[in-house]
Design a protein around this nucleic acid. Structure first.
Lengths: 215, 215
DNA sequence: ACGGCGATGACAGTAACTCTCAAAAGAAAG
DNA sequence: CTTTCTTTTGAGAGTTACTGTCATCGCCGT
């Protein structure tokens, strides 16, 4: 896996400055990208379940062991991202006076936009995959739990409530759940994949929550 | 909470009624019970991940094939139940004038009580397992999706909204999510396993939603 | 009593991991 | 540039959760 096209397109997890990194680090990033891109391509072509890890490894020109070293599970190839720090920062950047829900809403909303702008096509494909493959949907809840934890930590400081406070957990769970539904709804109907559509759906979804679930 | 599984309520040692069932049917119920009980016992003793299906099969005195015939996946041994029809019925029994959220809340709340009364100990152990084992947590979201679908169908009739209406999905997702958090909170803290504690937690959780997530 | 059919078990096969270990390759030091 | 240290990689063997097939066994209706 030495020589491969430099591949200018920077992918989702590549919001990293490749500048002053050692060769080792750069190669790791490349390998990670190669695996992920290959996987996405194959998933697209023949389906997630019908694509064995061995094939991904082969076409990405690495050994199966390496794939598992980078992604502990096959699901992680699709689900792994490093947006949590960004979301956390967005939340901490909200003015202290703001109500928790508003802060959360704005933080999530702006993060979503940034993610989308970073790599629109892959984001869309990713959400669609998660939406369609049961195994991925299931696993996503575990990943969401991590994000939820990050949000709860920030919200805990902001409100003075305990990090494991039930109300706090409900609020985060509800918001993340609504966000997920909005994203699913997005890939379901509007095949356009337009950001504005997504924003509108998210606004509707969070609106329902803020209105106390009134239909 | 998922569908399928014809088996009637299977309580602890309470002799299964099964009056006018053929021997075949009775054996099936017994086998199902044997597998599940053995599994729960082993999970309790040595942990979920550390318990291979082969061992469950051996100790339940059936072949591994049979285990998979009764439970498509190992997770299903813990997650499969037949409460969905009951929840649906509860919801349909609510007066038509009632607001969707109230109806949903009452339906879920009463169903929860009935489930608990059916088999308190196993319910508690089950929730604890789901709470603690990541694989189960993940898979549960798929099972919840089935329940959500049932609820959305009923709510759709009740409100006249489309079954895949975003607002409807948000409401159900939020309610089920809150319910889950309440149950997790229940097994987390109150090691008592008291029903009243659960009811109180559920009330708090759903209350947060109805108050528009105000903290 | 018997013949059909549903349930079971034995077996072979696949795929997702896990562990170990030795070789390859970047990094640091001389 | 060479040596040495450290990290990354690949190969291979093993485990486990499934999946599919097929012969057998035994309940069930006639």
């Amino acid at each position: 896996m030495t020589s491969m096209a430099p591949a200018p397109t920077e992918s989702a997890d590549a919001a990293v400055p490749t500048a002053k990194l050692g060769l080792r680090e750069r190669k790791k990033i490349q390998t990670r990208q190669a695996i992920r891109r290959t996987a996405y391509r194959l998933f697209e072509a023949q389906g997630y379940d019908a694509t064995p890890v061995d094939q991904i490894a082969e076409e990405a020109e690495v050994s199966p062991s390496t794939v598992f070293r980078y992604f502990p599970t096959k699901e992680d190839i699709v689900l792994t991202d490093e947006y949590d720090p960004m979301v956390e920062q967005s939340l901490r950047d909200r003015p202290p006076g703001e109500s928790p829900v508003t802060a959360l809403r704005e933080a999530l909303s702006s993060s979503l936009s940034r993610v989308y702008e970073t790599d629109a096509a892959e984001t869309f494909q990713r959400i669609r995959l998660i939406r369609e493959v049961p195994a991925l949907r299931g696993r996503m809840s575990e990943h969401s739990a991590d994000t939820a934890q990050v949000l709860m930590n920030a919200l805990s400081e902001r409100t003075g409530r305990a990090v494991d406070d039930l109300e706090l957990r409900i609020v985060t769970a509800a918001m993340l759940g609504a966000l997920t539904e909005a994203m699913f709804s997005w890939v379901d109907s509007g095949m356009s994949g337009d950001l504005e559509d997504l924003r509108a759906l998210v606004a509707r979804a969070l609106g329902v929550l803020e209105r106390g679930l009134t239909l």
